[in-house]
Amino acid sequence: MLYRDALKKAIDELMEIDDTIVILGEDVGFYGGNYRVTDGLFSKYGEKRVIDTPIAENSIVGNAIGMAFGGLRPVVEIMTVNFSLLAYDQIVNQLAKIRYMSGGDICIPLTIRMPQGVAKQLAAQHSQSFERIFASIPGLKVFTASDSITAYYGLKQAILSDDPVIFLEHLLLYSQDFLFYEINDFDITKQRIVKSGENITLVSCLKILHDSLEAVKEVEKKLGITVEVIELTSLSPLNLDLVYESVKKTKRLVVVSEEPKTGSFTSEIITKVMENCFYYLDAPPLRITAEDTPTPYNRKLELFSIPTPDKIATKIINWGREHGL
């Protein structure tokens, strides 16, 4: 199932049974969405439930908060995470705090969906990844969708949650076709093992997770070992029990992300693993991230600035050889 279709299926199925759910965002209605996630919903549910907004991100989120006060369950689409910064006040000062400030009186069941990441030559203002920016704000749940399964089940869980959820997607995943099958007890907050292995635990999410899986094939061949790959589906709440269990077995941790290295969310994962598995580690954790630079337009530089399957493999192999594998 196409990733974008999995997202649409989740929204559509819930809208069918709950008419308090409304969608709002730029080009989401008449036009069908810039990534065609909401294609067809405008004609199915009408303009009162699929609301085309102007380019006014702060108001989009602000209005959605007000709608939630009024008993609606808004699903916001921000065209890309880069523009969410225009709504950062509403997200951080308002959305994340209202329930707490009201002593638990007011719930805000609101989901903000948005894609992130480096696509292809979109330059510095259109290529960012913001796991750290949202996951570090108490009061926000932050989920990611790396394939059609997390897209479908995860988005449903997000929309049904009575809390505000930031739902991160990736620009390059929309047109990808992923295996889809039914799962009964899916819980996005638990993280997900996508491949089991014995000697290295690799943690990642979104597009770079797939690049990592490709790299892992090479790593396993070259080092003659197996790698366990864990998809990070929920950055907040951050339940890493699966990762701890895995690291205790493999004794080695690699975290791969498209964020620039310094202060990236990889740091948080590594810190938590150090706190919980220090005596089990047989090698210093390895971080593979983008460079600490804005993203350049030139394709060669752009690829140089982010992890690619080749680079991920080389880095893990060198690191493995240096640390007893």
């Binding site: 030559q121 330059a123 510095a124 203002q125 259109h126 350049p296 337009y297 030139n298 394709r299 060669k300 530089l301």
Partner: peptide, 16 residues
């Protein structure tokens, strides 16, 4: 074309 001789050294592209 993303070249170093570009007005923004190939770092900005069409939009910049």
């Amino acid at each position: 074309f993303g070249k170093i001789t570009g007005v923004s050294k190939g770092k900005g592209g069409s939009m910049h």
